[in-house]
């Protein structure tokens, strides 16, 4: 009558659950490292809001130093994920990975004032972006990248405000143009009711903010819409 259930089987399951917990712990600590470096880069790039535009290249160069650390962290992480189980643990690093994508995207924008390409993103992290919907090795998902781009729009709307404060009246105009381009890109996506969709809905407020800045500048003739800014007026305006 007894021994209907082989209790050894529960032991096996317990062992495999413990294995999984260990894997998770290892991944978590690798992700913590990634997160730490992310914060270092964020701290560097945050200074862009209080710097003049000549200082920006130096900031980007400084940020780029950290990206080699990020490559190391990601390659550590890569080794911890068992084959084919990428999505089993994906939730553990998705957030920091989005942040890292954002930071790479922001660095690239500050350097070249354009959107990072997939190739460049892959160069930043030494990891491929999953364009096949079929991850074999560790890859960055398109969603993570797009989350990074949404974060960029938010950051740029803030940069637009601070650029004005530091006397750079042309930047908001360029940012506005860039954001509209991004927005029309995002509008092409058929987003489901997921987190990306919710964040995408926020882009329009970023655009609105930048538009208001451009309006303020235009009304005061600090910048002429769609043409070069009026440099002479700067001296009278808000100079830091």
């Amino acid at each position: 009558m007894s021994n209907v259930v082989d209790l050894g089987f529960f032991d096996a399951i317990q062992a495999s659950m413990e294995n999984e917990a260990t894997t998770k712990d290892n991944i978590r600590s690798a992700v913590r490292e990634l997160d730490r470096t992310n914060r270092n880069i964020t701290a560097v790039l945050n200074r862009v809001h209080s710097s003049s535009k000549d200082q920006v290249p130096a900031l980007c160069a400084q940020a780029r130093i950290y990206f080699s650390d990020i490559q190391t962290h990601i390659s550590d992480l890569t080794k911890l994920v068992p084959p084919h189980q990428y999505y089993k643990y994906n939730g553990l690093w998705s957030g920091p990975m989005q942040q890292a994508c954002f930071l790479a995207t922001l660095t690239m924008y500050l350097e070249h004032e354009r959107l990072i390409t997939v190739d460049e993103l892959e160069g930043f992290f030494a990891v491929k972006v999953d364009l096949d919907n079929n991850i074999t090795d560790f890859q960055i998902s398109v969603e993570e990248f797009l989350h990074g781009v949404v974060s960029l729009t938010n950051e740029l709307s803030r940069l637009a405000v601070n650029a004005v404060t530091s006397g750079d009246f042309t930047r908001p105009v360029r940012i506005g143009k860039f954001l509209k381009e991004l927005y029309s890109g995002f509008q092409l996506l058929n987003l489901k009711n997921d987190s990306l969709r919710k964040r995408f809905d926020g882009i329009k407020y970023d655009i609105k903010k930048v538009e208001e800045i451009i309006y303020d500048l235009t009304v005061r003739k600090l910048v002429v819409a769609n043409t070069e800014p009026v440099q002479e007026v700067i001296g009278t305006g808000a100079e830091v």
């Binding site: 190739d119 092409l188 058929n190």
Partner: peptide, 16 residues
């Protein structure tokens, strides 16, 4: 990829 934002996002849409 990399030719224009709109074209890139078109591909992203297909992937998603």
């Amino acid at each position: 990829l990399g030719k224009s934002i709109v074209q890139d996002f078109g591909y992203f849409r297909d992937i998603l």
